[in-house]
C-alpha cells in the first residue's frame, strides 16, 4: 500500500481515508458503502450504509428493518468527505454495485463481486474507467471459462426430464441469494412449471419478485403434505441442506449442484453430487482479464480467490498488480 492510496486495508475492512468510509466492512463502522447483499459483504452493526437503490429490499431483509441504508441510483454521484462516490452495476446479483471513488481527479474502482455474463435477474456489468482497480479473483485461473448459459440450461432441463422419467425428485443445490433466482429466471424463459423451494429461499425469491424479476412460480416445500411424492419435481435448496434430515422427504433423489466450481470434475466428484452445473455469479478468467483491460487501470489490486496467479499474470503484462488480503470469499460462487 502507498501513502496516498484512496483505499487502504484496516482491521475493519477496506477503508477510504479521504472519504472516511468503508467498503463492505467486516466489523461495525460509522459509514459503510455496500457492494451487494451476500453475507460476507453485507454485515450488520454499522451506523449508516450506502448501497444501490435496486438492492435496498434485499439489504433491508439481510440487515434488519432498523438498519439505516441510503439508496443511490447507478451512476448518481454522492459526496463523502473529500471523495465523490458513485455506484455502478456489477452484474453479480440484484442490486450489486462497483464503487467508484474520485478524489482530486484520481479514480479508483472497487468491483465487489461481479460477472460479465448476461443475467435476467440483474442489470449488466458497467465498464468504469479508472486509475486503480480493486478486483475480485474468485476464479482467477484460465481453466475457468464459463459455458454459454443456454447450454447449461439445456443440461438442467435434460436432467429434470430424466428425473421425471425415472420417477425421482431432482434436488438442485445452489446458493439461496442470486443463484436460485437466476436459475428460476433462466428456466422461466424455457418452460412453465412450478419449482419447489427450501424455506431459506422463499423470502429471498419474494424480494426478487418485488423487483419485478420474471421467474418460475415457486412453492415452499414446507407447504406440501408430509407424504407428498416429489418424483419428477425440481427442488431448489441451499448446499447446507445436503445430508440434513430435511432431505429425507426426497428419497432416492438425484442431486445436483450449480456453481462455478463444478467446472472441475474433482470438485463435483468429491462432493458426491450426481450432477454438476457450471453456473457462476462471478467473472470467469477471460472476464477478469477483459475487465482489467477495459477499465484502463494502470494498477490492480486483487482481493479474494486465486489472487496469486492473476497478479503474476498482470505483472507479466505490464500492469502493476498486487494482492489485497481481505476476508471475503468462502463458497458463495
Amino acid at each position: 500500500m502507498r501513502r496516498d492510496d484512496l483505499v487502504i486495508l484496516r482491521p475493519e475492512g477496506m477503508y477510504c481515508p479521504r472519504g472516511d468510509f468503508y467498503i463492505d466492512p467486516w466489523r461495525g463502522v460509522d459509514c459503510a458503502v455496500l457492494t451487494h447483499g451476500h453475507a460476507d459483504h453485507a454485515r450488520s452493526g454499522s451506523v449508516r450504509y450506502h448501497a444501490a437503490e435496486s438492492g435496498l429490499g434485499l439489504l433491508q431483509h439481510r440487515l434488519g428493518a432498523s438498519a439505516h441504508i441510503v439508496g443511490h441510483g447507478y451512476g448518481e454521484t454522492f459526496v463523502l468527505g473529500d471523495a465523490r462516490v458513485s455506484l455502478h452495476s456489477a452484474g453479480h446479483i440484484l442490486g450489486s454495485s462497483q464503487v467508484r471513488i474520485e478524489v482530486d481527479g484520481e479514480v479508483w474502482v472497487v468491483t465487489g463481486d461481479f460477472k460479465r455474463d448476461a443475467d435476467p435477474t440483474c442489470t449488466p456489468f458497467d465498464v468504469v474507467r479508472c486509475d486503480t482497480l480493486i478486483t475480485e479473483a474468485t476464479f482467477g485461473l484460465p481453466c475457468y471459462r464459463w459455458p454459454a448459459m443456454h447450454e447449461v440450461v439445456d443440461e438442467v432441463l435434460d436432467w429434470w426430464d430424466q428425473c421425471a422419467r425415472e420417477h425421482v425428485p431432482a434436488v438442485m443445490f445452489c446458493y439461496a441469494l442470486g443463484k436460485a433466482q437466476r436459475l428460476l429466471a433462466e428456466l422461466a424463459e424455457r418452460v412453465d412449471r412450478t419449482v419447489f423451494l427450501h424455506g431459506a429461499m422463499t423470502p429471498l425469491v419474494e424480494r426478487y419478485r418485488d423487483a419485478n424479476i420474471r421467474m418460475l412460480p415457486g412453492e415452499p416445500v414446507g407447504d406440501s403434505k408430509r407424504a407428498r411424492d416429489f418424483s419428477g419435481e425440481l427442488i431448489l435448496a441451499p448446499p447446507s441442506a445436503a445430508g440434513s434430515p430435511w432431505m429425507r422427504r426426497f428419497n432416492s433423489a438425484s442431486t445436483a449442484f450449480a456453481s462455478g466450481w463444478m467446472q472441475i470434475r474433482g470438485n463435483r466428484r468429491r462432493r458426491g453430487y450426481d450432477r454438476g452445473f457450471v453456473v457462476s455469479d462471478h467473472s470467469d478468467w477471460p472476464g477478469l482479464i477483459r475487465t482489467v483491460e477495459e477499465s484502463g487501470a494502470r494498477r490492480v489490486l486483487a482481493t479474494h480467490g486465486s489472487t496469486d496467479s492473476l497478479v503474476r499474470y498482470l505483472n507479466d503484462r505490464g500492469v502493476v498488480a498486487a494482492a489485497l488480503k481481505t476476508e471475503f470469499g468462502g463458497d458463495d460462487s
Binding site: 485461473l141 484460465p142 481453466c143 471459462r145 467446472q263 472441475i264 470434475r265 474433482g266 486465486s306 496469486d308 496467479s309 503474476r312 499474470y313 507479466d316
Partner: peptide
C-alpha cells in the same frame, strides 16, 4: 495453443489435478 505462460499452465494443472482435464479446459 493457449498462448498462456508456462507457469500459469502449471498453476492451473496444480489446481485442476488432472492433465487431460487441464488441457481440455485450456
Amino acid at each position: 495453443v493457449s498462448a498462456l505462460p508456462d507457469w500459469l499452465i502449471d498453476d492451473t494443472y496444480a489446481h485442476v489435478g488432472d492433465l487431460a482435464e487441464t488441457i481440455t479446459l485450456l
